[in-house]
């Protein structure tokens, strides 16, 4: 936090330390990640069915994680840590679509299975006798 002259990069005004700027920017990114978490949790609680809840849930998993890693990298500023953060980002972006795809497919099959016992196959949106997930619709 204290500006040291040896590690400051070339700047026109010596009162601005780039370490302080990186710390402040990292704090802003971390705050943005926390705000994304709160927004997603509110959406998870208020949205009516599983598909829209998954839409809300994907925000901190992808964007919030990347924003948090950018803020962490701006705060830590070491090569080994930044490499490990890139590894975290790659793994997270590889494994998120697997779970989201399987959850959505399970929900889709559940809807289709409930409609097969009624009047045959219908499109998933064209439910005649109420939505199968409408118990939480307020």
């Amino acid at each position: 936090m204290t500006p040291t002259t040896s590690t400051t990069l070339a700047s026109a005004t010596p009162s601005i330390s780039w370490i302080g700027v990186a710390d402040a920017l990292g704090g802003v990114f971390l705050l943005l990640a926390a705000a994304l978490c709160l927004t997603s949790a509110v959406g998870l609680l208020r949205l009516p069915d599983l598909y829209s809840r998954m839409h809300a849930a994907s925000k901190p998993q992808a964007l919030g994680m990347l924003v948090m890693l950018v803020g962490l990298g701006l705060t830590m500023r070491q090569e080994l840590d930044v490499g490990m953060m890139a590894l975290i980002a790659v793994f997270q972006l590889l494994t998120i679509p697997v779970s989201a795809h399987l959850l959505a497919r399970a929900k889709y099959r559940e809807v289709i299975g409930a409609q097969e016992q009624g009047t045959g196959w219908q499109a998933p949106g064209a439910t005649a006798t109420g939505t199968p997930d409408g118990e939480d619709r307020r």
Binding site: G26, L30, A34, P60, M68, G71, M76, Q78
Partner: peptide
């Protein structure tokens, strides 16, 4: 399935709070 989605969100909130803690205390 809703509980599974909520658990996923809880895990990502946990990961983000661990990252914020590492940034605040400056350790890796």
């Amino acid at each position: 399935l809703d509980r599974a989605v909520g658990a996923d969100v809880l895990v990502s909130i946990l990961v983000i709070s661990l990252g914020v803690e590492a940034a605040v205390n400056r350790h890796s």
